[in-house]
Write a protein that binds this DNA or RNA. Structure first.
Lengths: 194, 194, 194, 194
DNA sequence: TTGTAACCGAGACGGTACGTCTCGTCTTTCA
DNA sequence: TGAAAGACGAGACGTACCGTCTCGGTTACAA
């Protein structure tokens, strides 16, 4: 029963979604997350403010959709290399790649800051943005457990947070990426399998 | 020769610094970081806007001073427990405590977001806010190396980032602190000494 | 074709014009022209600053509207007394009355000062404020010409400027109205008919 | 007894007067009267604000001094041409010349506007700026009386105000000088002698 | 056919805050 | 005491967005 209340009135023009998201991406590229205003998005998209607010009532929701394209971020599983060490190499390399996309760092921290004042938003952000990353990471450790590399009582979730969180902090907080970091992180976590 | 050019003109009223910082702290407590406006600080402190901007031209600078009190954060060394495992327990417990101060999480992410748009500010923030934490963490690993618990070529700095960064991400990004996390982190890093 | 471009968007609330003008008049009475700020008008009228600036982007424009009520100043013709001398008596007496309204002198010179820095404003001010007065005066001399009291080549416009200008200067510049002045002006100009 | 109280304390540096007046003239030329601030004058002259305020506590006083050089405006008598008509030609031509100096119009109305809010200032302005002009004009009519061109009971002062005031209004208020005006004014006033 | 309901672009609305400017006074040090 | 420098409280300036609302007009489905 996905559509219990049949749509009344004029249906939304689907094309406008794309116009708005395109405008959002353009402005994001030009002015960054904090320099992006709903006002400007509406104007750029040639759309009334109401139309914009009706579809994305908050900036982070709009930006998330524009940047990550909704379903695009559903934890696309990484290939199984056969060992924890190999999986960690792959995963950290992937994360590195994501954070090095220009604007990503500012976007993420801007969204976090925006969302923190509204618990509902923060929950949504975690659900949509952080959880997929964590799940990708969790899969790696779950595999290691099933392989017997790690003990059965390993806190899978905590390990995932350590990996994803350390990567996040490294790129967002501490800036200037040193090449050794990714390696050190992968090695440290692989040590658990010894 | 710290003061080569003698001060000209009317000197600043030192007391106003305190009045302003007090006002900042009060408003921070009431409205959080993002709800804090320079306008309101000036009014609350009973101070002209110019006076405020003259001393702290940017919000993050003001808030940093108000919240961390400048020199207060110069990496107060943690006691040496004699083992890496012990030190890690202490350090993670301390970090946990810091992040659980109400408002800390929002404040940190707000400041990070604010600072990211201005590279100078971000540099200052790293220098003042992140570096002390990292140094505390680095000391722990340096001790472990000198004890012989860790090999001599250990990337001290990376290890510090992993520890501090994972703690940060855990509290700021992933919310809802689970008691097991701190333990898992400490254990994981202690495993390096095996 | 008075309304070629149909109004788009939400129409302005006509009532606000009156609220704003009322507030302007009140503040004008309390603080005079130079003591009147756009800020205060907006606050007094209970109106956003944007709303005020949208309608009257400059102080003199607002004050002119508030004080003279726009169309109110379209050269209300003076009655024909039958002689130039009589008309001049009437006209100068009327001008005297106008300038003796409290605040008028300060208002006029304030507006002139404000407008002089922006040629467009000055043009508007002349069009709206000075021209009607000059036209009233010009009518008097035009009548005298048609009566045959003055020669056909009389510079009507110049005479009007002499009359209105002398009255203006007398009240605004030279202050302390001496009763004889008005009479002397009327007599002098009437002499032309001899 | 010109100097009963001997000067105490450090004597003023006479040269600063000139520095300040020079700065005033420069800023006047660049930004006009209304664009001139005491703040900017002090900075430009390289002088403390107190020093400036001590010597000229109000803007119009400063500007008057800077522009007219104090004693420069003591009604330098115009030559006697032998007839009222001739004197009027000379006088109006002179006035025309004065008003056509660039910036004069804005300066005069700005100063008037500034002074009108403070009766003391207005009195000073009249005494220093308007009276000399009026006296020059009055002399013309006084001569005409003594020649017998005008009756003995002529209101000399009123006639002076008409002449000077009409010229003022013509240039300041009504803008765009038409060449015929000066002539019309002179002719009209000369008509009194018929 | 005629409601009726939600859509649309545009933009007005009351607000808040921004960062800059000027005001006229006050307070320091140096001469 | 004068002078230079500049801090001080106050508050206006004009701009930018916020999120809501209101207009006239446009689709769609339902009666």
């Amino acid at each position: 029963m996905p559509n219990d209340t049949p749509p009344r009135g004029r249906p939304r023009i689907a094309e406008l979604d794309e116009r708005i998201l395109d405008a959002t991406r353009a402005l994001l590229a030009e002015h960054g997350y904090l320099g992006l205003s709903m006002e400007a998005v509406a104007k750029r998209a040639g759309v009334g403010k109401q139309t914009l607010y009706r579809r994305w009532p908050r900036r982070p929701l709009l930006v998330y959709q524009a940047y990550f394209g909704g379903a695009a971020r559903t934890g696309a599983e990484l290939p199984d290399t056969g060992t924890l060490a190999g999986d960690l190499q792959l995963a950290t390399a992937y994360q590195d790649h994501v954070f090095k996309q220009p604007g990503t760092v500012e976007l993420i921290s801007g969204m976090v800051a925006d969302c923190l004042v509204e618990p509902d938003l923060m929950a949504a952000l975690r659900e949509n943005m952080m959880r997929p990353d964590l799940e990708v990471a969790a899969v790696i450790f779950a595999r290691a457990v099933s392989r017997g590399e790690l003990p059965g009582d390993t806190d899978i979730h905590a390990m995932a947070e350590i990996m994803a969180g350390a990567m996040f902090a490294h790129h967002v907080l501490y800036g200037e990426d040193r090449p050794g970091f990714r390696q050190a992180l992968a090695t440290t976590l692989a040590k658990l399998a010894d």
